[in-house]
Simulated scan of single mutants.
Amino acid sequence: MTRYEDLPYRTCVGVMLLNKNGLVFIGRRAGGIEHVDESHVWQMPQGGVDPGEDTWEAARRELYEETSVRSVERLGEVADWLTYDIPRTVAGRAWKGRYRGQRQKWYAMRFTGKDSEIDVANPGGGHKAEFVTWRWEPMKNLSSLIIPFKRPVYDRVVQEFAALADE
């Protein structure tokens, strides 16, 4: 069995979807072994990058597969890859024990559609729902809503995209 320290990071993308008022889409996770309490179950859309897939295209695909949203324009990108480790207590159960955490490329997108386009119960492409509900949230609140081990990534994403909330 591979030691935790030797496990690779799963390559993923994350999306900060902002509405015209500068509020951020967050979804309440449908479940997952990494969630340790009921107050930190919210997150922005994110997911894996397929082999050979461009990260911008992966971000658009993941957004669609989790929210049904296609009406977006690109606002920005975090230049660095951001990483987080999952707790050792769940590492053997998450992602079949193959990864120690995620390596993420983050994008900011402006939502240009109507809220009725968002459908987390029946997401695009027939994918299984990952969120049970959603809402628009001020960017400054994101860190307090996310599971603690992902907070440094969220703090960096908020720092990188903070000016977009003021537009």
Rank of each mutant, 00 (worst) to 15 (best):
G113R: 02
G113A: 02
G113Q: 02
G113V: 05
G113C: 03
K114G: 01
K114F: 04
K114P: 10
K114D: 14
K114I: 03
D115S: 13
D115R: 12
D115V: 15
D115G: 07
D115L: 14
S116D: 10
S116F: 03
S116R: 07
E117F: 09
E117H: 08
E117V: 11
E117L: 04
E117T: 10
I118P: 05
I118S: 08
I118W: 09
D119C: 03
D119A: 02
V120L: 00
V120S: 11
V120F: 05
V120Y: 01
V120R: 08
V120I: 08
A121R: 13
A121E: 15
A121V: 10
N122R: 10
N122A: 11
N122G: 11
N122Q: 12
P123G: 05
P123A: 01
P123R: 03
G124W: 03
G124H: 01
G124A: 00
G124N: 04
G125R: 09
G125F: 01
G125I: 07
G126E: 09
G126W: 04
G126Q: 12
G126P: 08
H127Y: 02
H127F: 05
H127L: 00
K128S: 14
K128L: 13
K128V: 15
K128G: 13
A129I: 09
A129N: 04
A129P: 09
A129T: 05
A129E: 10
A129D: 07
A129S: 14
A129V: 04
E130A: 13
E130N: 15
E130S: 11
E130W: 06
F131A: 03
F131M: 00
F131H: 06
F131C: 01
F131V: 03
F131S: 00
V132L: 14
V132Y: 09
T133R: 09
T133A: 09
T133N: 12
T133K: 14
T133W: 02
T133H: 03
T133V: 11
T133L: 08
T133P: 00
T133G: 06
W134S: 12
W134N: 08
W134G: 07
W134D: 13
W134R: 05
W134V: 11
R135W: 12
R135V: 13
R135K: 15
R135L: 07
W136G: 02
W136P: 01
W136D: 06
W136H: 05
W136S: 00
W136K: 03
W136Y: 01
E137W: 06
E137A: 14
E137F: 03
E137V: 14
E137G: 05
E137L: 11
E137M: 14
P138I: 02
P138H: 12
P138Y: 04
P138A: 04
P138L: 03
P138S: 03
M139P: 00
M139E: 05
M139F: 00
M139L: 09
K140W: 12
K140H: 13
K140T: 15
K140P: 04
N141C: 03
N141Q: 10
N141S: 07
L142R: 01
L142G: 05
S143W: 09
S143P: 10
S143M: 09
S143L: 11
S143H: 06
S144A: 15
S144R: 14
S144Q: 13
L145E: 08
L145G: 06
L145K: 14
L145F: 06
I146K: 10
I146P: 02
I146V: 15
I146M: 06
I147S: 12
I147H: 07
I147N: 08
I147V: 12
